[in-house]
Amino acid sequence: MWNRRKDNEDPAPRTSSSYPRPSPTPPPSSEYAKEGIPMSTTPSRAYEPEMYRGSAVIGKSVVVKGQIYTREDLLIDGEVEGGTIESQEHKLTIGPNGRVHANIKAREIVVLGTVNGNVEASDKIDIRKDARLTGDIKTARIVIEDGAYFKGSIDIMKAEAKPQTPPLRTPPPPAEPGPPPAAPGSPK
């Protein structure tokens, strides 16, 4: 009662920037035994923790009403109502607790929760098992796991041919080797 351990408490929702990145080598076990040091600060989730890496996070207790525009990967595990969600060059993940009533545009979209709205991904849409998506999809590639609920149309966009950038031109070698140009300030 008095010595309540912090490691029994649920971690509060945080943004991704405050989540410690999982280190490849675990700390020595003696560190875990120290009183007051949480055993783990990463949230215990049924889905892959790598979803958090480098993503902004809308936690499951957060409700957003309106438009979202992001310039980084975004994980929505809360509720978003109305408007649009745009993450043109980035990945958008609707977590298992996520509920979105909005149109979505992103480079890559992963759905584990519920989406009601039209969805457009310039690269790929991934609808996981137990996800529910009601709306029209426009994408270049799509993955639907068995068990996912989807109602709507699927329009596969042909991959656009990227405009060819002209090759870098290296200055042509001089036709005749001449005298090297004089350095500024050097005597003629």
Partner: peptide, 8 residues
């Protein structure tokens, strides 16, 4: 090359 509408 077709478009698909799916409903269960």
């Amino acid at each position: 090359g077709h478009r698909l509408y799916t409903v269960d």
